[in-house]
Design a protein around this nucleic acid. Sequence first.
DNA 1: TTATTTATTGTCAATAATGATAATATTAGA
DNA 2: TCTAATATTATCATTATTGACAATAAATAA
Lengths: 193, 193
Amino acid sequence: MARPSKKDQRRAEILAAFETCVARYGVEGATLERVAEEAGLARALIRHNVGNRDDVLSAFVETFLNRSTHEVDEMISELPDTKQIDTLIDWLFDPAYSDPKVVVIYEALTTAAANDADLAKKLRKWAREFVAAINALLAKNHPRAKTKDLDAVAAGLTGIYFNVESMTLLGRMSDLREASKAAAIRLVQTLKT
Amino acid sequence: MARPSKKDQRRAEILAAFETCVARYGVEGATLERVAEEAGLARALIRHNVGNRDDVLSAFVETFLNRSTHEVDEMISELPDTKQIDTLIDWLFDPAYSDPKVVVIYEALTTAAANDADLAKKLRKWAREFVAAINALLAKNHPRAKTKDLDAVAAGLTGIYFNVESMTLLGRMSDLREASKAAAIRLVQTLKT
DNA sequence: TTATTTATTGTCAATAATGATAATATTAGA
DNA sequence: TCTAATATTATCATTATTGACAATAAATAA
């Protein structure tokens, strides 16, 4: 016997608007004013539905990292049965699959993490999970490779990939993307002895 | 017949304080108030010596990237005559040589570049120069390697290195640093056929 | 000493961001 | 229709940031 709650919907709208603002202005620049404007809501509704600025930030980080993890898992699960690593590299370095918005948000969060131990911990966990997923995939496709070698290649592959995504933000870097992809292929080939 | 100008000195103090603030609060968070506080100067002196906020930012980017380029050149020139690449990798992945302040500033600038075409251009130029320097060094040490292979390894090595520096900001990543170094060594070894 | 140039300080107005709370409007069920 | 829960709007105080300019202090050369 009451008016139906829109909190879930409003919360999603607010976090989506916050995401857009972080991508556009950075974490510090994502003010509640801008978020409200972007969401088409009164600022007081942010408080009503999510909370104060700290609440909004941590709620956003939570959903953003969960979504990223989920997307990575999904990508890996969609790999074909053969030539998994080749396909993985194709996908990782295909500019069509690169989402600049996600990249700039990840960059912005990393920057902010320099002064936010809690945020740093969450990002660390996320990054470790990514490397671990790549590592597991490499191990599956190179069952005879040593653990140390798998660790190195997984870390290297991740590094090359993350860096390419980061540099993509600067624009006009397609040649570097190509060269990085070639490096990734070379690196993986070192597992075939 | 006038009071001697301190503009050069003050300007340097202000840009150094701006650097500290960017590292601590990000580009958006480096307010002139904080910069003045950090520099121990009245805010009006920033205006007097450098200009408005945009002037301060572009002056800072200018000096920061120039200094970085210079430091890279210097590092390369200090490499021994033998085992240059091995030494390079030792230096690049030595945590003692990693300056978190520089890294977080580079991250912050990259984030800001997503909405600042001029800044993006400057960062692009800087990154390209870095890759080119690595490339030249590799070519010198592997004179029989093909250009394409050198391009790939230079891009990959740069990517692994930049990514490690970036992740260092998150703390507690020494294992990833070790694995990344091993990956860098593997990648370079692919040039020896 | 004086004139001139510069450094330094002080003050003001305008704008923006946040937190908080009161007041009003809306909707579903009793 | 009435009630209760919720959404939405309105408003206020506080603080932070910037830009601008006036006023004062300091230092050097003539």
